[in-house]
């Protein structure tokens, strides 16, 4: 199971192209939660999806995992893993892949674990399902996994119920379950939001370690740029269901070009800021959005908007390894 880490030039592991997710309700216009998202994930790469509530980041991950309900949801576009289209895969085949090839860690570890089943059983269930282990072997593997994610006294903990563990431990268990079958892609949907700050740092460190150890690629979904800064190689900034900026981590943090990214970074307290300096907030909220169809959705909240922003849809342009969707980007003075 220890495949050599593929070279970065290899085929992308996951290829998302023009993914659109529309929620349909009778008598009302469709709600486009994800509106043409495209990105690649190379084997072993850590990719961030960043944005505020309602920007479509979680829906994107659910669409990739095919966990959205079939009724009332229309998904178009393409999600390919190893060149195989996931969106048209039969449900049975998709079930085979979930947990084995691609796996997910959720936001709230307490509600994501089955409250009436001991945690050990929740790990062995996956191992027996995907790796055909017998009971005894799976139990041993579960103990090893719990040990690896830093649960003290794992031999005793396998029989513990989720409510008997602390929040941090629960998320460690979730990570152990998600990585039990050594998937090549792990999607972490705000894995630290429900935890307090010190535990957040531990869990992020653990995720980083585990991903490096198993060679899995990671899609990190978060609203917290601090999480991205320490973890992701490439960062996608989502706004209103579209990617507005994508760049390598250092370039994005060093010289944010999209006014939204710029605003997000200005709204975070910095250690090197002058004392008494005010944090800047982005005015308004997502309800102010314009439709992408003939404008820039961010325009009403944008300090740099020009006339064209309300007339034409800005297209994503790729310049020097940076993807940018803006008519009047922040000047790249520092770059």
């Amino acid at each position: 199971m220890t495949a050599p880490r593929p070279t970065p030039t290899a085929e992308p592991l996951l290829q998302v192209r023009d993914l659109r997710v529309a929620f349909r309700r009778r008598g009302e216009p469709d709600t486009l939660a994800v509106d043409g998202v495209s990105f690649d994930v190379a084997p072993g790469q850590v990719v961030g999806l960043v944005g505020e509530s309602g920007c479509g980041k979680s829906v994107t991950s659910m669409a990739i995992m095919r966990l959205l309900p079939r009724r009332g949801v229309q998904i178009t576009g393409s999600v390919k893993m190893d060149g195989e289209e996931l969106l048209t895969l039969s449900e049975a085949k998709m079930r085979e892949r979930r947990g084995r090839d691609l796996s997910m860690v959720f936001q709230d570890p307490l509600s994501s674990l089955n409250p009436v089943v001991p945690i050990g059983l929740q790990i062995t269930e996956v191992l027996r399902r995907h790796r055909g282990m017998d009971k005894e072997k799976a139990r041993q593997a579960a103990v090893d996994l719990l040990d690896r994610v830093g649960i003290p006294d794992p031999r005793r903990r396998v029989t513990a119920y989720p409510h008997q563990l602390s929040g941090g431990m629960r998320q460690r268990v979730m990570i152990a379950i998600a990585l039990a079958c050594r998937p090549r892609l792990l999607i972490a949907d705000e894995p630290t939001t429900a935890l307090d700050v010190t535990i957040q740092a531990q869990i992020l460190e653990l995720l980083k370690e585990m991903v490096a150890e198993t060679g899995a690629a990671l899609i990190m979904i978060t609203h917290d740029l601090g999480v991205v800064a320490g973890l992701c190689e490439t960062v996608n900034v989502l706004y209103g269901g579209r990617i507005v900026e994508r760049a390598q981590r250092h370039r994005l943090f060093g010289t944010p070009r999209h006014p939204y990214t710029h605003g997000l970074l200005r709204s975070i307290p910095r250690l090197d800021a002058a004392a008494g300096e005010q944090l800047e907030a982005i005015p308004g909220s997502v309800v102010d959005n314009l439709p992408w169809a003939h404008a820039c959705a961010f325009q009403p909240r944008c300090p740099r908007s020009v006339d064209r922003c309300v007339e034409v849809t800005p297209e994503a342009e790729n310049t020097g390894g940076r993807l940018l969707r803006c008519f009047n980007p922040v000047p790249a003075s520092a770059e």
Binding site: E96, R100, S112, V116
Partner: peptide
């Protein structure tokens, strides 16, 4: 639609097992 049932589905647990092990006991 509870989180742990979605989580079990996300791990590829088969439908009957999801129903009998994750939904029914709860």
């Amino acid at each position: 639609n509870s989180d742990h049932v979605v989580a079990a589905t996300a791990l590829g647990v088969k439908r009957p097992a999801v129903v009998l092990r994750h939904m029914l006991p709860n």
